[in-house]
């Protein structure tokens, strides 16, 4: 699985403080710790409190790429913030994210092409969050068709079915799992699939258990990538074990250690 570390986010107090005091060592430590724990890429988000994301985003990116060449997932709902980040990125990039709305795709897809970036597309539109699997699939199909019509390689597209907290939308979670599988059937080569795992457990108890249980289930449905906390050891153990059970890695008694030596 392509693991995107979620911890460089201004939503967290330490990163928010680092941004406002311009202390890049804290950001860099956070980046390296996530990589050491198995992150294949790093999400970068200035957070809701950032007063000047057009300056904060490039600063964060420059700080991170001083210490790692892992791909960076530029996380903002504002296209101009993403553009400011892309301008300074030397590492590979993933734009996070567009919605299914054409006016968003019209801006972000050309940016992705221009900067040779991959693109996360969430299956929501200005009509709101889809309420069932069929609505998710319809939005996903629109996004895929838009990419095909505009010459963007579908294998560089990550479709996000938008995870909702389990206490808010319990009846939707099974449909979300099924969407992950069905997104892959939309075309060949198929788009990649991604979830922002922590959304599932916002504001509820036993977060780590709920996250890792969903992650193992979604792996069985063919999930390619997740934005998650790689420093959650039990989550990573569950991920490695799920991949083992799905025959992605060869068993040995020390398979957890073997995976981490990769």
């Amino acid at each position: 699985m392509f693991i995107i570390g979620e911890l460089i986010n201004g939503m967290y107090a330490d990163i928010q403080a680092a941004i406002s005091s311009r202390n890049k060592l804290i950001v860099q430590k956070c980046a390296l710790e996530q990589v050491a724990c198995g992150a294949s890429a790093l999400d970068v988000n200035c957070g809701p409190a950032s007063k000047n994301p057009l300056i904060d985003m490039p600063w964060l990116i420059e700080a991170v790429q001083e210490v790692t060449d892992k791909p960076l997932c530029l996380d903002s709902s504002k296209a101009e913030v993403i553009k400011a980040g892309l301008k300074v990125s030397k590492n590979k990039t993933i734009i996070n994210s567009t919605t299914a709305d054409e006016e968003k795709l019209d801006v972000l897809l050309p940016l992705a092409k221009q900067y040779n970036s991959q693109l996360v597309a969430i299956t929501i539109s200005k009509k709101g969050i889809p309420q069932n699997k069929d609505q998710r699939l319809e939005l996903a199909a629109n996004i895929v068709a838009y990419c095909q019509d505009n010459g963007f390689p579908v294998e560089d597209l990550y479709l996000d079915p938008i995870l909702l907290p389990v206490n808010v939308a319990q009846e939707q979670i099974k449909g979300i799992l099924e969407s992950i599988h069905e997104f892959k059937l939309l075309c060949d080569p198929s788009p990649k699939t991604i979830v922002g795992l922590s959304n599932l457990s916002q504001g509820i108890r036993l977060r780590s258990l709920i996250n890792r249980t969903f992650l193992t289930m979604s792996l069985a449905y063919g999930l390619d990538s997740a934005i998650l906390n790689p420093k959650d050891n039990e989550l990573m153990d569950a991920l490695i074990t799920a991949e083992l059970i799905l025959n992605k890695n060869i068993y040995c008694d020390s398979y957890l250690e073997a995976y981490r030596k990769k």
Partner: peptide, 13 residues
């Protein structure tokens, strides 16, 4: 036995 082959390489490393 491929599982033992992998395990032994881990142990030696």
């Amino acid at each position: 036995d491929i599982n033992i082959a992998k395990q032994l390489n881990i142990l030696i490393s």
